[in-house]
């Protein structure tokens, strides 16, 4: 067993323009790319989407998490990235999920028309936490950009 996995949790604001269908397509393409790339990097995690907010958990070898995070930073489809946690974790929260999609059904806005098989239920503890992040953020005003 290698060193303890690193975990990074952040949220960001969605910056995808277009109809709900176009947004859903973009999210689908993010998930496809994520699953393809993450599997190679040895990264697992979950992405929750709702109310114009992304909340993501990435975990894996530290360097791999850093590489993936840097790659995601350059994506124009979101902004105002706020890292909530970054550090070693006891174990993976989403072992076997290159990028789980957390169903936003519980948080009002409709899910991306996702036929994705890799959606986890909101009973999963960390998935629930991602949803909570979205929940609590959605009622806050837009953050200032510093």
């Amino acid at each position: 067993m290698p060193a303890r996995p690193y975990r990074c949790v952040y949220w960001s604001r969605q910056r995808i323009d277009g109809t709900p269908e176009q947004v859903a397509t973009e999210i689908e393409s993010i998930l496809t790319a994520a699953r393809r790339n993450n599997a190679q990097l040895g990264i697992t995690g979950a992405l929750a989407v709702g109310r114009g907010i992304f909340a993501q958990l990435l975990e894996g070898p530290r360097q791999a998490v850093e590489t993936a995070f840097e790659n995601i930073q350059r994506d124009e489809r979101h902004g105002d990235v706020q890292v909530l946690a970054f550090g070693p974790a006891e174990q993976r929260a989403f072992p076997g999920w290159p990028m789980a999609y957390v169903e936003p059904s519980q948080i009002g806005s409709q899910p991306a028309a996702s036929t994705s098989t890799a959606a986890v239920g909101s009973t999963h503890l960390e998935a629930r936490r991602l949803l909570d992040i979205i929940d609590s953020l959605a009622v806050e005003p837009q953050p200032r950009r510093d």
């Binding site: 998490v65 850093e66 930073q73 350059r74 550090g87 950009r145």
Partner: peptide
């Protein structure tokens, strides 16, 4: 301004 001011992760540092 947006892109370069987003957080960086390096050697375990944010």
């Amino acid at each position: 301004g947006d892109l370069l001011s987003r957080p960086y992760m390096l050697e375990g540092q944010l």
